[in-house]
Amino acid sequence: MSFDFSVVPSYAQILWTGVLWTILITVLAGAISVAFGIGIAVTSMYGSKIASVPLRGVAFLFMGTPLLLQLYLFYYGLSQVGIMLPAFWTGVLGLGLHYAAYNADIFRACLKGVDTGQTEAARSLGFGRGATLRHFIIPQALLTALPQVGNNSIILLKDTAVLSVLGITELVLSAQRAISETYRPFEFYFTAALLYYLVNLAMEYLLSIAARKVEAIR
């Protein structure tokens, strides 16, 4: 059978909608992964063992099990305990928490890498432990972590495709809907792959700009 890409433009709106939803999911899940990643890293380093040990155990659990299995557990498990979340938010939360575990390791290493003299200087100026973390240690660690967290964000973008198994609208599910009407899987999957690649290029460009600005600040 020959390939026929002439059918693709007719479904441009569906594919474009999938791209927009993919970007939105990436932004939301990425924000969750950064916020929870910082929380896990700070708690595991500076919190009590009662809080830090369980958090680190949960982080290892997320890193040691498949993302798809975690999404199924969130999707079907939460409803069984009376927590009714829309599929979209369940997917975003599951994806964000999965990458929070990886980002936590990055933030933890970057927190350790901040010069101890910074803490001593802040304390000498009258800043307490919490204020020192908020105003000096965490901001510097974030700047150092940016390239690695950015790489994780690119991987997260590609993993949004897994959400299609939950019926969440994103690029792969949009392509599948077009395929169900045209019976042209190669054309639409190839187009989806190309769109992922273009979005990846845009993300890499933005991250490179951010990295240059960080280097200028440091």
Rank of each mutant, 00 (worst) to 15 (best):
128 G>E: 07
154 I>C: 03
184 R>V: 05
94 G>H: 03
119 T>Y: 03
187 E>D: 04
17 T>L: 03
82 G>F: 01
211 A>Y: 13
11 Y>Q: 06
2 S>P: 14
124 S>R: 11
162 V>W: 01
177 R>D: 05
76 Y>E: 07
4 D>F: 05
147 P>A: 03
65 T>V: 14
105 D>I: 13
93 L>E: 00
38 I>C: 08
152 N>L: 03
130 G>R: 15
153 S>D: 01
170 E>C: 08
191 T>V: 08
72 Y>V: 15
23 I>T: 01
120 E>H: 04
134 R>H: 02
162 V>T: 11
50 I>L: 11
150 G>R: 06
133 L>W: 06
127 F>I: 07
160 T>P: 06
121 A>G: 09
16 W>G: 00
61 L>K: 06
45 M>V: 09
117 G>W: 02
154 I>D: 03
210 A>T: 10
87 A>E: 00
131 A>G: 01
134 R>M: 07
75 Y>P: 11
153 S>L: 13
29 A>W: 02
158 K>W: 05
135 H>N: 10
178 A>D: 09
136 F>V: 15
71 L>H: 08
143 L>W: 01
12 A>K: 02
49 K>Y: 01
154 I>W: 01
73 L>G: 11
112 K>R: 15
179 I>F: 03
53 V>W: 01
145 A>L: 04
18 G>L: 05
215 E>V: 15
132 T>Q: 09
124 S>F: 00
6 S>W: 02
181 E>L: 15
100 A>V: 06
214 V>L: 13
79 S>G: 13
150 G>K: 04
131 A>M: 13
97 L>V: 09
54 P>V: 00
32 I>D: 05
132 T>I: 10
111 L>M: 13
107 F>I: 09
30 G>S: 11
120 E>S: 07
